[in-house]
Design a protein around this nucleic acid. Structure first.
Lengths: 333, 333
DNA sequence: CTGAAAGCGCTTACAG
DNA sequence: CTGAAAGCGCTTACAG
């Protein structure tokens, strides 16, 4: 394996000069630079980034920790992250926690051992412990999609309260009075905020909160299915699903019960499903700018790596209501 | 930052003994082991994996290079990879090439600098150059989904010829005679093999090959849309889409032209769309065992890292035909 | 603009 | 079962 010393020898310079050329650090005479570059090329020199990182305390590595890599929302976020990172010369570890705190803690521990420069974290729980562990070791952190308690940390997320409010107001405007909420885990800020938007819209329409219509579960197809089944006896005329996978499960449960949308029950959803999956978009949704979210979060993280003293910022991105034919006025009683 | 020396000092042993305890390498007296473990815990010692990797020439890192992280097929493969890798103590870099050879070469170069132990590669082109570059530096390689020319390398993939044959035979059995092929890039083995299965099924039914019904493009929604538009003038009664995204584009083009499936045109597709996206599965598809594919490929890679002299193997996984209501007999002329 | 020396934090290769 | 010495391939911190 050829090393920086071999290159230096062939170019007739000291190793440190080769290092300066390769990293564009410090001044090198153009003539010298060229000799070094030629020597490196001739020897097919492959820099050992491990040695570089070990010595310089910089790995040029980020990690993206998400809760479900199977969800197109996160896949799209991942593309935004990947594009910005690779453009800046960073590689990205992807970690999938399945909304599991233990898995998350294990990943964070592994990332600390690997000395990643920064982490983009979609937290599986609202505890700030893992974020704190990272910050204590000087790892940059940006929290995605959800908020975390007890630590000062950059956050980039969509506007859950407003998105939920818009969706549910659309239903109340259509005349619905029995609107159910199918939310994610009760402990997550996104669930709470989407529930808050739901409640605000009901109040604005002068409707009472009915606890039998409000369900918390998980952001999965299975949970959406289970919540919808439990709900059917309470005869809602419309449902608000707090994410796309919950909606998918709920729709399956409706179909199994012989119910159609919007004739029997109107459906609105937080999070769109991208193009390839739905050739005919049906669901009324609030679309989050997922790619932009990944991009903005990564840019913020890189910024923070350059300037660690930057004041913490909570960036809330606007969401967009897309009305489609899954909603209609309720059937007359 | 506490180091292995600090731990050694506190435990009253030499650094190498700490190393042996932490890596479970070599014999250590249980008593000594315990003292070391306690010291490490008390000091909140975080091993520096960079130093470890640098010295031992082992990074415990893999990379998964795919062509489109947005496609649920690859997402599911990724889960299989991630699960096996993390269980074995490996972290995974995810790289997305967008079927772009240049991007792929850049990623491979970066992975070489990072000294990953192994790479799972879904090649963007049939050239074996990048595989060869990895092998030359003693990086383990398993090729996914597609074959590559001119190098001996492990391969794990679905049975494209048979899957295509089954789908198209299903159409010929229904009585279709004008069956179109919407394939991916002409240069990829998957495209060629799916075209070969298509041709074999037509021959088996005594049908001629009609070049005006055979189109090659890309594995994208846009390409499927464009190919379908070009095709409409030729009045096929059925189409075989070589992947799910091509099908999605084709269906949109059909809808824009006022055509329905299966009344106007029957549709069969290589690759399923997973649960959440289609509450009512409609398309007749061949489903690949994507999770198993990722799992099997990663297991094979880890095996090869342990035994580099293993003979090369081409593992072809069976696929499964799922008949659904996107297919019917052609309308009488 | 360039270089000699030291050292990052581990593991390898011996030795006992 | 345990340890002293050397070294992995770079960059840091000086020096000139």
């Amino acid at each position: 394996m050829t090393t920086i010393r071999d290159v230096a020898k062939r170019a007739g310079v000291a190793p440190i000069t080769v290092s300066r050329v390769l990293n564009r650090s410090g001044y090198v005479r153009p003539e010298t630079r060229q000799r070094v570059e030629q020597a490196a090329a001739e020897l097919h020199y492959v820099p050992n980034m491990l040695a570089h990182s070990f010595r310089s305390h910089r790995t040029n590595t980020l990690a993206l920790v998400v809760t479900d890599i199977t969800n197109p929302f996160w896949t799209t976020v991942a593309r935004g992250v990947e594009d910005v990172a690779s453009m800046a010369g960073f590689s990205v570890f992807f970690c999938n926690t399945d909304e599991n705190e233990t898995k998350q803690a294990q990943y964070i521990a592994a990332l600390l051992r690997r000395r990643v420069d920064g982490v983009l974290l979609a937290p599986a729980a609202s505890s700030g412990a893992d974020v704190h562990a990272l910050q204590r070791q000087n790892v940059g952190v940006v929290v995605l999609d959800r908020r975390v308690e007890g630590v000062a940390v950059d956050t980039v997320r969509g506007d859950s309260v407003d998105g939920a409010f818009q969706l549910v107001r659309h239903l109340t405007d259509l005349g619905h009075r029995r609107i159910a909420l199918l939310a994610g885990p009760a402990g997550l800020s996104v669930s709470q905020e989407r529930a808050a938007g739901y409640e605000r819209a009901l109040r604005a329409a002068g409707l009472p909160l009915d606890p039998s219509l409000m369900h918390f579960g998980a952001f999965t197809v299975a949970s959406g299915h289970a919540m919808m089944r439990a709900l059917l006896a309470h005869r809602p005329t419309a449902i608000f699903a707090a994410n796309n996978f919950i909606a998918a499960g709920a729709l399956t449960a409706m179909r199994e019960a012989g119910l159609h949308t919007p004739e029997d029950i109107s459906v609105v959803v937080f999070d769109d499903l991208p193009d390839p999956y739905v050739t005919t978009p049906v669901l009324t949704v609030v679309a989050q700018p997922a790619y932009t979210l990944g991009k903005a979060a990564t840019e913020r993280l890189l910024e923070r790596l350059r300037q660690p003293e930057l004041p913490v910022r909570d960036l809330v991105l606007p969401v967009q209501l897309l009305v489609r034919r899954s909603t209609a006025a309720p059937a007359p009683q």
